[in-house]
Amino acid sequence: MEISKLLPDDEAGCAEAVALKNSAAKLDCPEMLQPTARSYANMLRYGWDMEPEYAYLARDADGNAIGLLGMGVNLYDNTNQVWIDVDVHPDHRGRGVGSALFEYGESLTRELGRDTIGYGCVDLPKADAFARRHGFVQKAVEVNRRQDLTGLDYGVVQRLYDDALAASTSYELTKLTGPLPEELLEDMVTLTASINDAPKDDLDMEDDVYSPARLRAYEEAQSKSDHTVYRVIAREKSTGALAGHTVISVERERPHIGEQHDTAVDRAHRGHRLGALVKSAMLLWLRETEPGLTQVDTWNAESNDHMISINEQLNYKIVARILAYQKKI
């Protein structure tokens, strides 16, 4: 078996990686959304916010792709950590491929001078046993939910919006696509950092660190990946303070697919139903501007009861439970 780095300009290699991921997902969690070859290459180029991911393909003696190691190397915060994903083609499981990729990822982590590896896998008994056998300790559960817009009752959405609007008369909404206006940038740094109040459970993680440069990097990465970013921002009328926001990114390659990137309310402005307000306003807006959009995926800690309760009102259903592990090396 040979393991080699996958570069984003390797179109054939990215296509092989995606085919392998699809084969693994078909067995492990067929409903989970998988990238296209193009979007996978863009993650290797730009990442989420110009923090590119890394990938390594394992091939057998005949050159067939049999395993894939993905690595996220934090640059903005938690710089002692690396997060990995491991996929093994179903036809090659039980032959040491996954173990070899784990060991390879650990070696790369040591070379980077980092001391913690994070790992996530679908909640399956064999996957859990595999992680624990390699010294990982489960620290959290993340849940992937999907909103089916074709079956969404927009009467429910409108009522949620109307009720939230009545509870938040001191606030007004701003809708934006594309880059943030310069005059909002500094305040958006503070508001975006509100996501740090979301549950981390037992994960050994520092708060995310945001800056104007990082927000601009996020916009750049999404634009270069051919995604349209929609924002709904709640602002306090009397002070102009930014109080809450929600962000959805829509793929242009697959315009029926959207992803919830953020929803957060500043601690000083909670208790006015701003989370429900911005999320319902977003849906009503996207119904007009993205008529081809049929699904939106979101991720939450399983313990995030407040956000989950809003999502369940908006026709989100569970797609997958992901067990999150960490290991000190």
Rank of each mutant, 00 (worst) to 15 (best):
L283E: 11
H272N: 14
A281Y: 01
E288A: 14
A268W: 00
L283W: 06
T263R: 03
T294D: 08
W285I: 05
V265P: 00
L293K: 00
A264M: 08
R273V: 00
L274C: 07
E288T: 07
A268G: 02
L274P: 01
L286M: 15
T294K: 13
A268Y: 03
L286W: 10
P291Y: 12
W285V: 05
T294S: 12
S280M: 03
W285H: 15
G271D: 07
K279S: 06
A264N: 09
T289K: 15
S280L: 02
P291C: 13
V278F: 02
E290D: 07
S280I: 02
L293I: 09
H269M: 04
A264T: 09
P291V: 13
R287E: 15
M282K: 11
R273F: 06
R287H: 13
W285M: 05
L274M: 08
W285Q: 04
M282N: 10
S280W: 01
P291A: 13
T294F: 04
A281C: 05
H269C: 07
K279I: 01
A264V: 13
R287M: 12
G271V: 10
L286N: 09
S280F: 03
H269E: 09
R267D: 10
L293S: 04
L277D: 01
A276L: 10
G271A: 14
D266G: 11
R270M: 10
A281I: 01
L286Q: 12
A276T: 09
L277A: 08
L277I: 09
R270D: 10
K279H: 05
V278E: 02
R273W: 08
D266K: 12
T294L: 14
R270F: 12
H269D: 02
L277W: 07
G292K: 13
M282Y: 10
H269Q: 05
A276V: 01
V265T: 15
E288H: 09
L274F: 06
R267I: 13
L284T: 05
T289D: 08
G292N: 15
V265G: 00
R287N: 09
Q295G: 02
A268Q: 15
W285D: 10
V278Q: 00
L283D: 12
V278Y: 05
P291G: 14
E290P: 04
H269K: 10
G292V: 05
G271P: 04
